[in-house]
Design a protein around this nucleic acid. Sequence first.
DNA 1: TTTGTTTATGAGTAATTGCTCATATAGTGA
DNA 2: TCACTATATGAGCAATTACTCATAAACAAA
Lengths: 102, 102
Amino acid sequence: MNTTADFQAEILFAVAHPNRIRILEKIRYGINCNCELAPALGLEQSNLSRHLKILVNSGILRSWKEGLRTNYEIADKRIYKLLDIAADIAKLKLEKQTEVFA
Amino acid sequence: MNTTADFQAEILFAVAHPNRIRILEKIRYGINCNCELAPALGLEQSNLSRHLKILVNSGILRSWKEGLRTNYEIADKRIYKLLDIAADIAKLKLEKQTEVFA
DNA sequence: TTTGTTTATGAGTAATTGCTCATATAGTGA
DNA sequence: TCACTATATGAGCAATTACTCATAAACAAA
């Protein structure tokens, strides 16, 4: 039996990876095909493809075919709110790291 | 070099586990010591201790000693906003699961 | 001091993750 | 048809994760 916590964890796990966060940021600003994402992020094609699959399976992205291309878009825009909060919390850590080099 | 996405991922990873989500929910409603959390969640003591450590190291929880006990509290309350959004998104999945049994 | 209580951690393990290389699949255009 | 392009996926690998059992460490109370 899956509880709410299990489903919450699935969603959170799907976005808890630097490359998947970068993918979502690119999609946020209009890049929405595998072929554009790979060079934009410097990711190996098969690696990118698997990350995208994780995001689709978790319900965060929706995908559709258009000829050879596969396009992606956000299925639930609330995920960006979630990422923004994570970014705000992360800022504290980022500042602490910067102090070391100051 | 750590980018924002790396730090975001660290925060998200820390909360991307069902047991850590349950821990945060218990702390949200006042249970704040290791010794109360273990029975409340049915977790093995050493396992719980390691989950708590992950939450402290990520900066989500703060801990302090009080005699034998270690108490925990939320360091950044925005994490609950984040969990609430994840719960909202997860609701869609939960409903889909329920349909199967309906 | 001795005994008990609470938490932390070392060691070991099975399962999972993220990655790469190679290959398959599917559609495009000459 | 035959190349070419874009994406998906099998196989294999090193690293990490979540967990348990056993033990250590730290403090409390008799």
